[in-house]
């Protein structure tokens, strides 16, 4: 069935203007505190709307926490922060049942994971047990404590940060765990002009304090629902899958992108299209997001790593060799 036939079926209208309005409001709000990082902000927002989680891998002090906080504040939602340390216990993340002497009963005290946006700082510093307690919550969106399931909030997004430089005493996330993050991004140092701006304004006052919510969780949930209706035509689906499959056959790759990666990519390109105000996905969306959604899921061959080839290089290589559908 060609794409032409599909689209002449009656289809529900997509409330894109409302979505774009919401998104642009959030974006411009975040831009007030984060300078010159439009792309990063856009990707973070994409992750939120694709119902995924974000792994920010960068050196300290470039604004990882700030990004998470700004996002959380822009949306009128709860945010919590967990500083992962080697002695952090799983119950420190998920919550604990405590005895309340006044009532004589046990009460559940929710952990930091019961928030809309959870910032897990330096996730690689905690032990694997604690890491996996968070990662399970990310995947299942429920936490079971003492046999009682507790549903997490909606929207729910974990922004985990990882310091790639200081590796002593850390437990780097294994590939299987990294796969649970929709995207891995690096924030990068700001531009000189932007840094100047940062220095000037931050010295004066805490701009984060001024940030007021521009929308509520309900409108975010609405946006998420709406975005699911963005159309991905068959040529695009095939192109997207071809890109994912090509990573599995690439000569520098030991382990390629999983079907979960294809799913993640398709969810994210829908968001990109919606943010751009389109009701349909175009190949450019795939090309834009593949370098962010796919690389952290690949395991390269040792010799390729030795040769200094990165996963992003592999994706770029795959994209440059993949014929793009034009109709």
């Amino acid at each position: 069935m060609s794409s032409t036939e599909q689209l002449d079926a009656p289809r529900p209208p997509i409330d894109l203007p409302a979505v774009s309005t919401t998104l642009q409001a959030i974006e411009s709000n975040i831009h007030r505190v984060i300078r010159g990082k439009d792309r990063v902000v856009r990707l973070a927002l994409t992750t939120l709307l694709a119902e995924g989680h974000l792994l920010v891998e960068d050196v300290p002090g470039v604004g990882k926490t700030l990004l998470a906080k700004a996002l959380a504040r822009s949306i009128d939602c709860s945010v919590s922060r967990v500083q992962f340390t080697p002695d952090l216990l799983p119950s420190d993340v998920t919550g604990v049942t405590v005895y309340a002497p006044d009532t004589g009963s046990f009460a559940f005290r929710p952990g930091p994971v019961f928030a809309n946006i959870v910032l897990g700082d330096e996730i690689n510093r905690a032990g694997p047990k604690t890491q996996s307690s968070l990662l399970e919550a990310m995947e299942e969106r429920t936490v079971t404590i003492d046999g009682t399931p507790h549903h997490l909030a909606r929207p729910f997004m974990v922004i985990a940060t990882q310091n790639p430089i200081e590796l002593e005493g850390t437990y780097p996330l294994p590939e299987a765990q990294r796969d649970r993050f929709l995207m891995r991004i690096a924030i990068g140092y700001p531009h000189a002009d932007d840094e100047l701006e940062i220095v000037r304004t931050h010295g004066a006052k805490d701009r984060l304090e001024e940030l007021t919510p521009v929308c509520d969780t309900a409108s975010v949930v609405h946006a998420i629902r709406t975005i699911r209706a963005v159309r991905v035509s068959e040529p695009i689906e095939r192109y997207l899958i071809a890109v994912c499959r090509a990573t599995r056959e690439h000569h520098d790759v030991e382990l390629g992108a999983s079907p979960r990666a294809s799913l993640a990519l398709i969810r994210s390109v829908r968001v990109t299209a919606a943010i751009a105000g389109r009701d349909h996905v175009i190949p450019d969306d795939v090309k834009l997001l593949a370098p962010h959604v796919l690389p952290h899921r690949l395991i390269l061959r040792p010799n390729a790593e030795l040769a200094g080839i990165t996963a992003v290089d592999v994706i770029t290589d795959v994209l440059s060799g993949m014929p793009v559908p034009t109709e």
Partner: peptide, 12 residues
């Protein structure tokens, strides 16, 4: 390009 891609990929 926008119109072309809308035509090709199921857009309105």
């Amino acid at each position: 390009a926008e119109v072309v891609q809308a035509a090709a990929f199921d857009g309105d």
